[in-house]
């Protein structure tokens, strides 16, 4: 597959995408883990597959990593059919698998040097130290991996995925199970990778992670892509504008707002009023200011991917699980 005409990118003649997926399926008995998905990832892009557990994200990524064979469809990575020529591109692809665990009894310095040799690269001591410094493990380079924290282990995993100087890195749920501090530190590292021009395919069930990091997001559910676009475009398309929150207004507040002909919903003890069109914001605020129900606070909130997810999937997601 050579250069091709791409209407999505303004009709320019462009290079082949780094990842190109067409009608990909993976079926197990009566389960459709991946059900005819198509997408492409451009060079230097950070692409996120977002969805709950069991949506088909990891199955998709493992097909793209050459670790599973698809049932049907086409998947090309760096121009190579994943079913045929993966050996040719192994050292151009970095992988951080889901639930990555390092070898307990190797130190980060040893693990990075060992992993590089499995890609036919012999790193100098300085190169090893540089990679370890990049992922922020300089102080822990000589600590057995079994004694590293969860966040440090993932950082080591990212260092190992980078030993071949890959053009493309797969990060399968890189921050799952980490505390918020460790997650934000990893986000910084992932942003740094992207800034260096590495193409990244990220899977996550954290909506904020996809919104913060990704250039392009595909929301998956039941093996299908149910929405696709940049976070900003998705929010514009599905997020229903902004929300005015009447904190602590409760049932009385909801009743008072409804009596004024305004659609609202109760979220806990807060009343949410959606304002789809930005120019209507002032008028709506004036209307709500006239309500005398006690509130603790009034503030506006931009729609987020959470709203998009609720709209396209029909349920909220908590730690990868869809709420009823």
């Amino acid at each position: 597959m050579g250069p091709r005409w791409s209407p999505r990118r303004g009709g320019n003649l462009t290079a082949e995408p780094v990842i190109d997926v067409r009608g990909l399926t993976k079926h197990y008995a009566d389960i459709k883990a991946v059900d005819g998905i198509s997408f492409e990832v451009e060079k230097g892009q950070m692409f996120a597959l977002l969805g709950p557990n069991g949506a088909g994200k990891t199955t998709t990524v493992e097909i793209l990593e050459g670790l599973r064979d698809p049932t049907s469809g086409e998947a090309r990575v760096l121009g190579v059919d994943v079913r045929k020529g993966y050996r040719k591109i192994r050292n151009r692809v970095g992988v951080l698998p889901q639930d990555f665990e390092p070898f307990d009894r190797l130190k980060p310095r040893e693990a990075v040097a060992y992993w590089a040799k499995l890609f036919d690269r012999t790193l100098t001591k300085e190169e090893v130290a540089g990679l370890i410094r990049t992922v922020g493990l300089a102080d822990r380079a000589d600590t057995l991996a079994m004694n590293l924290s969860g966040g440090e282990k993932r950082r080591l995993g990212i260092a190992m995925s980078l030993v071949g100087k890959p053009k493309l890195v797969f990060l399968d749920e890189p921050t799952t199970g980490l505390d918020p501090g460790a997650r934000r530190e990893l986000w910084g590292l992932i942003r740094q990778l992207k800034s260096e021009g590495t193409t990244i395919l990220l899977t996550t069930h954290y909506l904020d992670e996809a919104e913060q990091l990704a250039d392009d997001v595909a929301i998956m559910n039941h093996g299908k892509i149910v929405a696709r676009g940049s976070p900003a475009n998705l929010i514009t398309q599905f997020g229903a504008g902004a929300v005015i929150v009447l904190a602590g207004a409760g049932d009385a507040g909801l009743q008072a707002v409804s009596q004024r002909g305004v659609d609202a919903e109760l979220n806990g003890s807060d009343v949410w009023v959606r304002v789809p069109i930005a120019s209507d914001m002032r008028g709506m605020l004036e209307k709500l200011a006239a309500i005398d129900t006690p509130v603790t606070e009034i503030y506006t909130k931009r729609a987020s991917l959470e709203d998009v997810f609720l709209k396209v999937v029909g349920a909220r997601m908590q730690e990868g699980v869809l709420a009823a």
Binding site: E65, L67, P97, E101, F103, F119
Partner: peptide, 13 residues
């Protein structure tokens, strides 16, 4: 159980 085989499968070994 610790998925090291899968990890190794991503290398040239």
């Amino acid at each position: 159980t610790r998925r090291f085989f899968k990890l190794l499968a991503t290398t040239k070994l």
